[in-house]
Simulated scan of single mutants.
Amino acid sequence: MNGRFMRVLVFFDLPVETKAERREYARFRRALVKDGFLMMQESVYCKLALNPTAARSIMDGVRSRRPHKGLVQMLLVTEKQFSRMEFVLGEYHTEIIDDEERLVIL
């Protein structure tokens, strides 16, 4: 596989003090999940992109759904960089096959 695959990481810290803020938080989070993002940990989500153009499109989608308050950050990394992530504490558990070796392109 070549290095064209990328990951879009979304980090967010949104206020949840009022009912309206909690509703907006839930709306943003549901939109990420509906768009195919996987939760890595609380308020950190990622999605695989097949190429830089697809990654830009994914990032544009997140921008269009951004909440009015709070902080949303995005980071684009190559699949090779993402695979070098080190788990320092705890164990990695998933039932989702999301590594490069098991990706099938039809």
Rank of each mutant, 00 (worst) to 15 (best):
L76P: 01
P52I: 11
K80Y: 05
G90F: 03
K80W: 05
S43F: 04
V77C: 10
T94C: 14
K69T: 08
R102I: 01
F87A: 08
P52K: 10
I58V: 13
S83L: 07
Q73S: 14
A54S: 08
F87N: 12
I96N: 05
N51C: 13
I58T: 05
S57H: 04
V44E: 01
G90K: 07
E86K: 14
I96C: 09
P52L: 10
R84I: 00
K69H: 10
A54Y: 00
V72S: 09
S64T: 13
R102Q: 11
E91K: 13
P67W: 04
I96R: 11
H93S: 11
M59N: 02
M59R: 11
D99E: 10
T78D: 06
V44R: 07
V62G: 03
L50D: 10
Q81S: 13
D98R: 15
L75V: 15
Y45G: 00
Y92D: 10
A55V: 05
P67D: 02
H68A: 15
E79F: 03
L76R: 08
S43L: 02
D98S: 14
T78K: 11
R65K: 15
R65E: 11
M59V: 14
R56E: 07
L76T: 04
F87I: 12
L48H: 04
L89T: 09
E95C: 09
G61R: 05
V72P: 01
A49C: 11
E86W: 01
G61T: 04
R65T: 11
A49I: 01
E79Q: 12
I96V: 15
L75Y: 08
V72Y: 01
L76N: 02
A49T: 01
R84M: 13
L48A: 07
V62Q: 04
E100D: 09
A49M: 06
L76V: 13
R66L: 13
H68R: 15
K69L: 13
S64P: 01
L71G: 00
K69Y: 05
S57F: 00
H68F: 06
M74L: 12
L50G: 14
G61S: 08
Q41R: 15
S43D: 05
D99V: 09
V72I: 14
L89M: 11
I58A: 02
K80Q: 12
E100I: 13
M74P: 01
T53P: 00
K47Q: 13
S83Q: 14
L50Q: 09
V62H: 01
T53M: 04
R63W: 00
L48N: 02
G61H: 03
P67C: 12
C46D: 14
T94N: 13
E95I: 07
V44A: 05
S57W: 03
E95K: 12
V72N: 05
A49W: 02
E79Y: 02
A55N: 00
Q81A: 15
S57Y: 00
V62D: 02
R102C: 07
V77Y: 03
G90H: 04
G61N: 10
E42N: 14
S83R: 12
P52W: 00
I58Q: 04
S43A: 15
N51M: 06
I58W: 02
L76F: 03
E79W: 04
L50A: 11
R66W: 03
R56M: 08
R63F: 04
G70N: 10
